[in-house]
């Protein structure tokens, strides 16, 4: 199967997203049991904002990260273009 060649710029951006999402999942689980921690909520919202800035930069190289309308498609339809995460 032919795989879409990704430029070098893609890899550090993907690692950055994984790092940002780690902060977000940690804050999410923490806030699930500490719902009144204002500082943590502020941190969460800051990281959520940063994530929104980062995602389009990755998608310009990799195509849609999510489906169901959460990401825009290129032409042709590039959602099912390899590599998938386990093929990277």
């Amino acid at each position: 199967m032919s795989q879409h060649q990704l430029p070098q710029e893609f890899y550090p951006l993907m690692e950055e997203l994984q790092a940002v999402d780690f902060v977000l999942v940690e804050l999410t689980l923490y806030l699930d049991t500490h719902p009144n921690d204002t500082a943590a909520i502020q941190q969460f919202n800051e990281m959520a904002y940063y994530r929104h800035q980062l995602v389009p930069q990755i998608e310009q190289y990799y195509g849609p990260l999510q489906q169901f309308g959460n990401s825009y498609s290129g032409y042709p339809w590039n959602w099912n273009q390899s590599p998938w995460p386990w093929q990277l």
Binding site: Y62, L65, Q66, F68
Partner: peptide, 12 residues
């Protein structure tokens, strides 16, 4: 559920 095309942490 929404699938995201990325691993939670890099696997090597």
């Amino acid at each position: 559920w929404i699938y995201e095309k990325k691993l939670q942490y890099p696997v090597r």
